[in-house]
Every structure is written in C-alpha cells, then in structure tokens.
Amino acid sequence: MNIFRLAGDMTHLASVLVLLLKIHTIKSCAGVSLKTQELYAIVFATRYLDIFTSFYSIYNTLMKLVFLGSSFSIVLYMKYHKTVHRSYDREQDTFRHWFLVLPCLLLALLIHEKFTFLEVLWTFSLYLEAVAILPQLVLLQRTRNIDNLTGQYVFLLGGYRGLYILNWIYRYFTEPHFVHWITWISGLVQTLLYADFFFYYSQSWKNNKKLQLPA
C-alpha cells in the first residue's frame, strides 16, 4: 500500500459517500445518471467476486463491502425510493449504457491476463469502469447546469483515477515485476475521459461562474 493508492481509495470512497449522502439528505437525485450508477454496481459486483474466495486484508475486504453496499444502495434509492425516484431525470438520462456492457465483455474474453471465470469478469469490470462515467458526463452536458454535488462527485472520481495512475507509477518503480498493461491502459482511458470535464470544472471555479459545459 502506498500513499497514492490510499489517497485514491479514500477519494473514491468520498465520491460514493458524497453521492449517497446527497441523495439521502435532500431526498433528490436530480442531475445524477442512474445508468452510470447501474454500471458502477455491475463493475463492483463483477470485480469483487473474489471476496468469497480469497482474503487479502481487512482493509481490502472492508472497502469492497463498502463499495458494493454504497453502489447498490444508490441504485435502489434512485429506482425505488418513493421520493427520490421522482426526481430522477428519466428523459435526459438516455445513454444506451447496455451498449457499453457487451463490447466490454467481448473485449474481456479476448484480452485478459488469465482465461478463468473470475479473471475474465475482473477484466470486464476494468473495461466497464473505464466507460461507466459516460452516461453521467452526457447527462451533465445535456442538463448543462451542474449542481455542485454532482460536479463534486465527478471531480472526486477523476481525482481517484489520477491518484491511481500515480500509484501505478510508484509501484512500477518500487516493485520489480509490477507490470499490468490491461489495468494501466483501461485506467488511462478512464482518466482521459475526465480530462475535459476537469478543464471546464476548473474554468468555472476560476471565473467563479456556474459550470457551463459546451453543448
């Protein structure tokens, strides 16, 4: 464990907790893409299957349970909570996210480290996580205004990805044979997707105006 990875995990934890708290306290999910949340639930469900078969550390297992629990409760809140589900912007959140699942599954069947059930699903979860934010970014572009909590959510997610890249660089130089091209490339693609959002987010902070994303 290194400081970059710990900071990355904490930032990731903060992003899901910020979102869960927002939805729980103001009983609204305006501006949040259910599709992205569903994709994240699938990402965690397919990545943390090893929670039953192998134990790495208390921290590792605890964080997996927290990520699984928070992502599924966000989806359940948005779909079934009597008040929250009414604030879900169904007409705007129209990204065909199921079209993302199949290519990621096919790619995982083609490119993986080991051809085992758990490993292919783990690789699938990496590819899916790389594109899971797309429905949320599209929704932000559509609704054009970013209420600051949703913006914070995406900002924290981007921060977690950036810290993970630093973590990989650190591990590459400190652990002799730490080479994981699949993780690195899908992680890089994911981080690049946030890049333009970061640009507009920083612009809005600099000019202290409401974040307007280009159409």
Partner: peptide, 10 residues
C-alpha cells in the same frame, strides 16, 4: 501485483 493471481487493488 497479482499475488497468486490475486488482485490486491480495489
């Protein structure tokens, strides 16, 4: 690193 194929990162 993947210790015995195990992924130690979240």
């Amino acid at each position: 690193g993947s210790i015995s194929g195990f992924h130690d990162e979240l």
